[in-house]
Every structure is written in structure tokens, then in C-alpha cells.
């Protein structure tokens, strides 16, 4: 590719070293993200163990099916991102664009479903600080605070991810990527997968506490 050498920033010896550096940079950022969500995971673990019955009572108001659909949607979106990386490695930018569009579509489906869930919670009066009318065990409100803070921050990350993937489509259409240079695709993919991993934990945390009869 004629333009791939122009993609090499002057501080790097070669494109491989440059890719290694950008991947490491992303992993350093993701390490901070792990600890960002980790703090909330710790809060969840402490309060769940202290007020287990309240958490069970709160989780009875979750829609297990909608949560399941969303989990499947996100897992599929990670697969489309991975296949997108595979496409750009072969220089197939049309397929890359298709997979990025599918990723954005799946991410949007997730957010729309999340929006429906949030609006149901509002209708049922389950949003702490805004409209909370549930008469339950002590501390049941704490379950919903953690639910909205953790899924809210996750949804925010999804929105950022959709923005990033949109930028990737524009860059792809401008012919920025080739099998020799696709760092932004790779790095955006790492971010998307991380957000997927967060949801892999949030789903059992909030939806599957006690669903058995």
C-alpha cells in the first residue's frame, strides 16, 4: 500500500512497533476502566452480602427475558467487531464497513431495550431519588441505586462505543485502513469488547440473583 508508510509516525521503527504501542496504550486505559467499574463491583459485593434479602426483593422487579436478549445482543456485537478486524486484516474494507454497521445496530438495539427497561422502572416507581414507591425490605433502594449507577455507566460506555464505531466507518470510507495499518479498528475493538465484558458480569449481578421458583 502506497499510503501505509505515511501512516508510520516518525518515533516508531516500523508499523508493527507502532501497532504494539497503540494496543498497549489502550490496555493501559482499559486497566483504569477495570478499576473504575471494579470500585462499583466492590460496592455491589459488600451491600449484596450485607442486605442479601433486599437484593433478592429488588431483583424480582427485573425483566429476565429483556436482560437475556440484551446479553445475547452484546455477545453478538463482540463477534461482529472481531469479524470486522478479520475483514480489515484481509483488506476487505466493504465487509469491514458491514460488520461495523452491524455492531452499531446491535449496540443501538441494546440501548433501546435498556431505555424500555428504564421507563418501566419509572412507571413502577423504582427509580431512587426520582420516583421510588416500592415498599420492600430495608435497603431495597440500595439495590436500585447500584442497578442504575452501574447499568447507567455501562450504557454511557455503549454510547461512546457507538460514536467511536461511527467514526471508524467514516475513516474506513475515506480509505484510511489497509492490512498494513488498521490500529484504530483494533483499538476501538478492544474498547468495545471491554464494555461487553462489563455487561457479562452485570447481567448475573442484577437479573439472576434468585430467579428459581
Amino acid at each position: 500500500m502506497a499510503n501505509s508508510s505515511s501512516r508510520l509516525a516518525h518515533q516508531f521503527d516500523d508499523l508493527l512497533q507502532q501497532q504494539e504501542a497503540s494496543n498497549l496504550g489502550m490496555w493501559a486505559f482499559l486497566a483504569t476502566e477495570v478499576l473504575f467499574f471494579g470500585g462499583m463491583f466492590a460496592a455491589y459485593a459488600v451491600y449484596r452480602s450485607l442486605y442479601y434479602e433486599a437484593f433478592v426483593a429488588g431483583s424480582q422487579h427485573m425483566d429476565v427475558l429483556l436482560g437475556a436478549v440484551n446479553t445475547a445482543v452484546l455477545l453478538l456485537s463482540s463477534l461482529t467487531v472481531a469479524l470486522g478486524v478479520h475483514a480489515v486484516q484481509r483488506g476487505d474494507n466493504a465487509t469491514l464497513t458491514r460488520y461495523l454497521l452491524m455492531t452499531i445496530a446491535l449496540g443501538s438495539v441494546f440501548l433501546v431495550i435498556k431505555g424500555f427497561e428504564y421507563s418501566h422502572k419509572y412507571a413502577e416507581g423504582l427509580i431512587p431519588g426520582i420516583r421510588f414507591t416500592l415498599e420492600g425490605p430495608n435497603h431495597v433502594e440500595l439495590y436500585f441505586i447500584l442497578y442504575f449507577v452501574m447499568t447507567g455507566f455501562h450504557a454511557l460506555h455503549m454510547m461512546v462505543g457507538i460514536g467511536i464505531m461511527t467514526a471508524m466507518i467514516i475513516m474506513t470510507r475515506r480509505g484510511r485502513f489497509s492490512p498494513e495499518y488498521y490500529n484504530p479498528i483494533e483499538v476501538s475493538g478492544l474498547y468495545w469488547h471491554f464494555v461487553d465484558i462489563v455487561w457479562i458480569f452485570l447481567y448475573p449481578f442484577f437479573y439472576l440473583i434468585r430467579v428459581h421458583p
Binding site: 508499523l15 501497532q19 445475547a72 463477534l79 472481531a82 469479524l83 478479520h86
Partner: peptide
């Protein structure tokens, strides 16, 4: 350019494994 490229088959297999674990 990177040392190793994961094949399409592996990605699809991992995707299916993830869905199976989810179920």
C-alpha cells in the same frame, strides 16, 4: 502486519461458545 491473525473459524467458534455459556 501483526504477528498472528485469528481465523474466522476461531472467532465464530468463540462466539458460539459465549452464547452457549450464556444459555
Amino acid at each position: 502486519m501483526s504477528g498472528h491473525h485469528v481465523s474466522r473459524k476461531v472467532y465464530v467458534a468463540v462466539g458460539l461458545a459465549l452464547l452457549a455459556l450464556f444459555v
